[in-house]
């Protein structure tokens, strides 16, 4: 069967059909949507407060009163996992959005300016990319001090070079296109040419790349929290809950459920992202 090849505008972000056709991708979209819904509804559906301690019922295994069991302070793990989503999802999106913003600005400047500026910026990104991103994020987070805001800043600082390189490549690719030449020929100002004709045309691949990375950002945030560089311990956060569970291997439920939360959300986000990329990248599409 010959798939229908549709013409598509460069800016189109509509959910493509090939994505809808893959059951894995559909399932993942549902999982992601479910997590977003659970996060939004957490205060209404969580059976207990995320901070409510019931020390008499500490380390209770999963049961009717506590579906996911309780932690060493007698807090309900189900409630903490649900509230954890309210932190992880916005933090993942915010970290990526900031990194995309910073990277795009820097990369576009490099691509548009060229010459010495380009060289300088690119060598800086090379320098940053030489560090493993998680280690870099750890260093930054440790230097700034533990906390949610600092973890977001750390992820942003560690990740912007990837987007900067990407944006620079796209800018260089776009700046000599005919439509850009045409705009220049009719006398548009360099700024207008850059913003309207170059930047707008390269935005969608960057946004898609960013979407792909939200899962990874959530995982990196959880890793930072696991290492004690996230929010203070009483705040429900998946990574720090897994870290707390390390000391209680016999009480498997403490680390397992937050771990499953990370697993399901991050895998689903990655599958959705992959599907999105496959669908939108003409080179990967079957002829």
């Amino acid at each position: 069967m010959q798939p229908v090849v549709r013409r598509r505008g460069a800016r189109s972000l509509a959910v493509p059909r090939s994505l809808v056709r893959s059951p894995l991708a559909v399932g993942s979209v549902i999982v992601v949507a479910a997590w977003v819904a659970l996060a939004a509804a957490a205060p209404a559906i969580a059976p207990y407060g995320p901070l409510a301690q019931d020390i008499a019922d500490r380390l209770a295994p999963p049961g009717p009163a506590h579906w996911f069991g309780t932690d060493p302070l007698g807090r309900d793990i189900l409630s903490r996992v649900l509230y954890g989503a309210r932190l992880s999802i916005p933090v993942g999106i915010a970290a990526v959005a900031l990194a995309v913003l910073l990277g795009t600005v820097i990369g576009s400047v490099a691509g548009a300016a060229g010459g010495v500026v380009d060289e300088a910026i690119m060598r800086l990104t090379d320098l940053m990319l030489a560090f493993p991103t998680v280690i870099l994020a750890m260093i930054i987070s440790a230097a700034l001090g533990a906390g949610i805001r600092n973890a977001v800043i750390a992820i942003m600082v560690a990740w912007w070079p990837t987007y900067a390189r990407f944006a620079r490549g796209l800018v260089i690719g776009a700046r000599d296109r005919e439509y850009v030449e045409a705009a220049r020929a009719v006398g548009a100002s360099p700024m207008r040419v850059f913003l309207r004709h170059v930047l707008l045309n390269i935005l969608s691949p960057i946004v898609i790349l960013g979407t792909l990375d939200v899962g990874r950002a959530i995982l990196t945030f959880a890793s930072l929290s696991f290492l004690g560089l996230g929010p203070p311990p009483q705040i429900p956060e998946w990574g720090s809950e897994i870290a707390a569970g390390r000391d209680y291997l016999d009480q498997w439920w403490i680390a397992t459920f937050p771990g499953l939360a990370i697993l399901t959300l991050v895998v689903a986000l990655n599958v959705v992202g992959d599907g999105l990329r496959d669908a939108l990248d003409p080179r990967l599409r079957k002829a």
């Binding site: 301690q53 302070l73 533990a146 004690g228 203070p232 311990p233 009483q234 707390a244």
Partner: peptide
């Protein structure tokens, strides 16, 4: 005994009488 556990317990105990502690691990 993880010290972080004691810290969270003490923080929550004191919150019941209106004493607010910021945990600095």
């Amino acid at each position: 005994i993880p010290t972080a556990l004691l810290a969270q317990k003490i923080q929550s105990d004191l919150a019941t009488v209106g004493i607010q502690l910021k945990l600095d691990g």
